[in-house]
Simulated assay, not measured.
Amino acid sequence: MKNVKVKGVTRNIRYRLIYFEGECFLVDSESGCISYFFPFLDWFIPKKMMKLSKENEKKLVVLYNDYQKKPAFLTIYAAIAIAISSFLNRIDVYFDNNLTIKANGVVLCVFIILAITFRIQMSIRAKKMVTSIMSLEAMGEQKIRIIPSSIAYMFKCFGGYLLTVLVCWATTAMFLNNGNWLMLICWLIFFLMILFLNVFSILGEDYKVQFIKSK
Rank of each mutant, 00 (worst) to 15 (best):
F95R: 01
I82V: 09
I101M: 07
F95G: 00
C157V: 04
M139P: 01
L188H: 07
K58A: 05
L60G: 08
K156L: 11
F155P: 03
S149W: 13
N178T: 09
L162F: 06
Q121L: 12
K156H: 11
A83H: 05
Y67M: 14
V110D: 14
D96H: 11
A138C: 02
T172I: 01
I113P: 10
I112D: 11
L162M: 13
I133D: 06
L176E: 02
A126K: 08
S85V: 12
K156V: 09
T171Y: 13
R145S: 12
A79K: 04
M174E: 11
L166F: 11
L63E: 06
L176T: 01
L203S: 12
M134R: 02
V93H: 10
L176Q: 09
C168P: 01
Y94V: 05
C168M: 08
D92M: 15
K59N: 07
A152V: 13
A83K: 03
T164L: 04
I202C: 04
Q68E: 15
Y153E: 02
F95V: 02
A72C: 03
K128Q: 14
N198L: 10
M174W: 10
T100N: 02
A138F: 09
V130F: 01
L197T: 07
C186M: 09
N180V: 06
F87T: 07
L163M: 15
N177S: 12
I124A: 15
M154D: 03
S149N: 11
N104A: 00
K70N: 05
N180F: 03
L63W: 02
I91D: 13
M134K: 00
N198V: 11
A152S: 13
L114V: 11
L99E: 00
M129D: 10
S201C: 04
S132R: 04
S123A: 04
F87V: 06
T172W: 08
L162R: 06
M154H: 07
I185T: 11
E205D: 12
M174C: 05
F87E: 00
V62G: 03
S86D: 03
I76E: 12
Y161N: 15
N89R: 14
A173W: 01
K128A: 13
C168R: 00
P148F: 04
K127F: 15
N177P: 01
N177G: 03
L192N: 09
L114W: 11
I116V: 14
V167K: 06
S132D: 12
N98V: 00
G204A: 08
Y64G: 10
N104I: 01
W187V: 04
K156D: 13
A83M: 11
L166T: 09
A72I: 01
A81F: 13
F175H: 07
Y64Q: 09
A126R: 02
S123P: 03
V199R: 15
S149M: 11
K58P: 00
Q121K: 14
N104C: 01
S135K: 02
N98Y: 00
N98G: 02
N97W: 05
Y64V: 03
W169K: 12
Y67K: 14
M122K: 14
F190W: 10
S85F: 15
N98W: 01
I113G: 09
L136E: 03
E205Q: 14
M183T: 12
L74W: 09
L60P: 06
L163N: 12
E137C: 03
V167N: 09
V62F: 09
I202H: 00
F175L: 05
I120N: 05
L192C: 05
L136C: 02
